[in-house]
Simulated scan of single mutants.
Amino acid sequence: MDFQVNKLKHVAIIMDGNGRWAQNRAHRRVWGHVRGSSVVSNIVEKADDMGVKALTLYAFSTENWGRPPSEIRTLFLLLKKFLIKERNKVLKNNIKFNIIGDISKLPKDTVKIIDDLKRDSKDNTGLKLTFAFGYGGRAEIISAVNKLIAEDIEVTEESISNALHAPELGDVDLMIRTGGDQRISNFLLWQIAYGELYFTETMWPNFTCTEFEKIIMEVEKRERRFGQVTETESLAATKTQVKNNFRLIN
């Protein structure tokens, strides 16, 4: 029986290293993206089997618009092909699909495919699969704050969380970055406040379900205190304890 997650409900992945993987093999960068796209389906299926509640994948950042046009077009095409290929599997496996970020620059037919899959899977109750495409963490926070100001809602930690692109996903419990770099790269900045971080040297095209499961098992053993002295269930539990302590002190 596969290992089942207990603490790690929301896992986010920065799928890095496609271009370098290809260049190391004397191929064009786009070849790495093609190879890397085939890994996504396996990891989604593995996360679902392990009981992960939400999986968010960093597919294309706001900074990626500075890449060569040919590479950008390839990424657009791969997204379209993936959605067409995986549509039936998403629906069959009760997966709820979503995209966060700015997809206005995508081809209209791709946007329609996205909208159709979001609509047809919106009532699914299984894994919440989210692609971050045309996404930037700072832009998301700015958008949330501006939304609150426009609606004359007080800007608080709770109201910002509720105004984010996909508030139903909650905080990130674990963020994995492949490819060797050890940075966040403007990904889910608000949501990873207390997330566990894991950096692997493995390039995304070489990332396997076995390594994914090994990382999950290792991080599940970490003691997560959320600012407390001993292990705590969640950040929400810490906030409740803080409120109770204030009452006792005052």
Rank of each mutant, 00 (worst) to 15 (best):
67 R>T: 02
48 D>R: 15
61 S>C: 02
45 E>C: 11
51 G>F: 06
68 P>G: 04
71 E>P: 04
48 D>A: 13
48 D>W: 09
54 A>K: 10
67 R>N: 02
71 E>S: 09
51 G>M: 05
68 P>M: 09
65 W>L: 08
72 I>Y: 04
78 L>G: 01
55 L>F: 09
50 M>E: 08
69 P>F: 00
45 E>Y: 11
68 P>V: 07
60 F>I: 01
48 D>H: 14
66 G>F: 01
77 L>Q: 15
58 Y>E: 02
68 P>Y: 05
77 L>H: 15
75 L>Y: 01
57 L>V: 06
62 T>R: 12
77 L>C: 13
79 L>M: 14
75 L>T: 03
78 L>H: 03
77 L>D: 15
67 R>I: 01
76 F>Q: 13
46 K>G: 07
65 W>G: 09
68 P>I: 05
63 E>K: 12
51 G>A: 06
66 G>S: 10
74 T>C: 15
71 E>K: 06
53 K>H: 12
79 L>F: 11
50 M>N: 06
68 P>E: 10
55 L>G: 01
49 D>I: 13
73 R>S: 15
56 T>Y: 06
55 L>Y: 03
53 K>I: 03
50 M>L: 12
57 L>R: 04
75 L>W: 00
76 F>L: 08
58 Y>G: 00
78 L>P: 01
63 E>Y: 06
58 Y>M: 04
78 L>A: 04
68 P>F: 07
68 P>H: 12
52 V>P: 00
68 P>K: 12
59 A>Y: 10
59 A>W: 07
51 G>Y: 03
54 A>H: 10
67 R>S: 02
62 T>E: 14
61 S>W: 00
51 G>T: 06
54 A>C: 14
47 A>S: 13
57 L>S: 04
49 D>P: 05
71 E>V: 01
79 L>K: 07
63 E>P: 08
57 L>A: 08
55 L>V: 01
46 K>Y: 04
64 N>I: 05
65 W>I: 11
50 M>F: 09
63 E>W: 09
71 E>L: 07
75 L>S: 03
49 D>R: 15
59 A>V: 13
65 W>A: 08
52 V>E: 00
77 L>V: 12
59 A>C: 14
77 L>F: 14
70 S>D: 15
51 G>K: 05
54 A>S: 14
69 P>K: 10
53 K>C: 06
74 T>M: 14
54 A>R: 09
58 Y>K: 00
59 A>M: 14
52 V>D: 00
67 R>W: 01
71 E>T: 06
52 V>K: 03
45 E>W: 09
63 E>M: 08
74 T>P: 05
53 K>M: 10
53 K>V: 02
64 N>Y: 05
45 E>A: 14
72 I>M: 03
58 Y>D: 01
60 F>R: 02
59 A>N: 09
77 L>T: 15
54 A>G: 10
50 M>C: 14
75 L>P: 00
60 F>M: 03
78 L>F: 02
64 N>H: 09
62 T>P: 08
58 Y>V: 00
68 P>A: 12
77 L>E: 15
77 L>R: 14
66 G>N: 11
54 A>M: 09
78 L>M: 11
68 P>N: 12
71 E>F: 04
73 R>V: 13
67 R>E: 01
75 L>R: 06
63 E>V: 06
59 A>T: 13
54 A>T: 12
